[in-house]
Design a protein around this nucleic acid. Structure first.
Length: 211
DNA sequence: TCTACGATCTTT
DNA sequence: AAGATCGTAGAT
């Protein structure tokens, strides 16, 4: 049986947590989704991050302790789910962009207006809809199996990496930053063309070399 | 208060 | 290529 991810799982850099979230199971109210695509929003100096303008009522959960949800409304329609990482006061989170449905297909179908297949869960707005999320969920903890939580699963050995989506307002460097991660074997991924394959070993080597 | 604009998705 | 749709942030 897989365990609920403990708060300590999230208490690391968003860039480290993000690829490790791939394959993990997002659960709420009978719906189970396998995480297939994520994006890291690393720190307040990340000009693509909601934390770039400092602490506000909306982004408060991002500045709070790790292992909590940050849900916000995008384009007046979409409930976007982020998982808060790092330590309290650091302002970082991982956006869940796409998932593969594992259980609760009937509920998902109802919430998604009958749309099925990979197209039903590729894109962060669709993930929020499938889980029935609302900005009211923002700030709720993820490390108890109560409402919304994540089950552990084996870490993938390789994945896709590339630039984040929909952040044209950020600096060119941050637009270019390869902070989006996806399961290479999954159809539940957006904008595949801009992603390239790397292995967990290569990622660790790069990190080691950088320090 | 007022205004502009989104970490999007659907339809044309 | 553009409309939906509304809370948020920054300006007034």
């Amino acid at each position: 049986m897989s365990e609920v991810l403990p708060q300590s799982f999230y208490a690391r850099d968003a860039l480290e947590v993000a690829p490790q979230l791939l394959g993990k199971l997002l659960c709420r109210d009978g719906v189970v989704l396998r995480i297939s695509e994520v994006e890291a929003y690393c720190h307040p100096d990340d000009t693509a991050s909601h934390c770039r303008m400092g602490r506000t009522a909306r982004n408060a959960p991002m500045w709070g302790p790790p292992g909590h949800a940050y849900v916000y409304l995008c384009y007046g329609l979409h409930q976007m789910l982020n998982l808060v990482t790092n330590r309290e006061g650091e302002g970082a989170a991982v956006l869940i962009r796409s998932c593969e449905p594992v259980a609760g297909h009937d509920i998902i179908r109802a919430r998604r207006g009958g749309i099925e297949g990979p197209n039903a869960l590729t894109g962060p707005g669709k993930v929020g809809a499938a889980l029935g999320l609302h900005t009211r969920c923002s700030g709720s903890p993820l490390f108890d199996a109560n409402d919304l939580y994540v089950l552990d699963a084996p870490e993938p050995r390789e994945w896709l990496v590339g630039p984040r989506v929909g952040i044209g307002y950020a600096t060119p460097e941050h637009q270019r930053a390869p902070w989006r991660f996806a399961l290479h074997e999954s159809p539940w991924v957006t904008q595949r063309k801009t992603l390239t394959r790397v292995s967990a070993g290569a990622s660790r080597t790069r990190k080691a070399r950088a320090r």
